[in-house]
Nucleic acid binder design. Structure first.
Lengths: 173, 173
DNA sequence: ATAATTATATAGTAATTTAATATATAAATA
DNA sequence: TATTTATATATTAAATTACTATATAATTAT
């Protein structure tokens, strides 16, 4: 039931592109350094994302990759759906025909509804949300380095409001 | 992101026990026939369910397995949590310490919240719900065999109300 | 032109996991 | 004591995962 590194790394790749949207093409070498993922593996992972038309690429020196849509218009759900080839917890959730018990199987409906709950949540979060959160987190890190004795500075608290959008995500820790 | 057969078969095993709760110990051979799963594999799968104290077993002739709690008091979420060893989509959702990026990783929160959405849904459904649904489905199947020209008989519709509890599950097909 | 840089395409692989099966043993009952 | 059922441990084939390697193609700066 765990997500593959493919989905997780691919989502980080997309968030990285979102963070650098408007700054021209981003090279895989730079993403690899920032995200600590091998370039070779990123090259594999980016293929389905390009096929799904999330990313456009430019070859040659000063080339790289850019999102085809603004970050606010791309949800994590879409990304995971591509990289996991669907967002269901069982094959039968999507394709009843693969199981002859599907018609009367009470558990199938459970898997289906749990899949939907999961996917609905993923759909509700955009790359813009995550890029904003990443920015706020980076600022908080920088501030805590700047003034270790004043971690709860007014400055830090004000900046952290930028991530209020995402605050609901961390409820229930 | 797919559930293993272990979880799926294990849940069916538990639903089968729920359907036969009150009828004394149920043998794996019978479950194997009804669920079309090999006895040997069921023997593997039942181990963690016994360790988690969901099931008590009786050896020897006329032996078998019984739920330790009434079906209404066991949720699918609990079962899946045992068989999948946790209900999170990533290792970092539960154990932040395994990833040094956890503190500032925006995607981690997404995986965490999606995991929660999925698990909350699974927790909300009990074995009693599923046993009732299975009963209703069996009745519907039997009725359609009895009177193929009158599939929407009043009798069948009344019986199907027993599964109203579960009707929300099949929304959004 | 050509050297350097970046993306793309295809193939290979080691390790792990999955989904089982096989064999031997222990307990309980008729 | 023979039979039936559960339990414990070991084995395994196939698939999947998480990569790495090699070769090629396109673009740009010098």
């Amino acid at each position: 039931m765990k997500l593959s590194t493919r989905s997780r790394y691919g989502t980080r790749l997309m968030v990285d592109l979102a963070e650098h949207y408007d700054l021209g093409p981003v090279q895989l070498g730079d993403i690899a350094k920032r995200q600590d993922i091998s370039v070779k593996y990123l090259e594999q992972i980016i293929i389905p994302l390009k096929k799904a038309n999330f990313i456009e690429s430019i070859r040659g020196p000063k080339g790289g990759h850019i999102l085809t849509r603004p970050p606010a218009e791309i949800s994590v759900g879409e990304i995971v759906a591509i990289l996991e080839e669907g967002v269901s917890l069982t094959e039968c959730s999507e394709h009843a025909e693969i199981c002859e018990r599907a018609d009367f199987c009470p558990t199938r409906l459970v898997w289906k509804e749990a899949s939907k709950a999961m996917f609905d949540k993923l759909q509700s979060i955009s790359l813009a949300d995550l890029a904003a959160r990443a920015k706020a987190a980076a600022k908080t890190q920088a501030d805590s380095g700047k003034a270790k004795t004043a971690r709860h500075s007014q400055e830090a608290r004000e900046e952290s409001r930028a991530s209020l959008l995402l605050s609901s995500i961390s409820q229930g820790d």
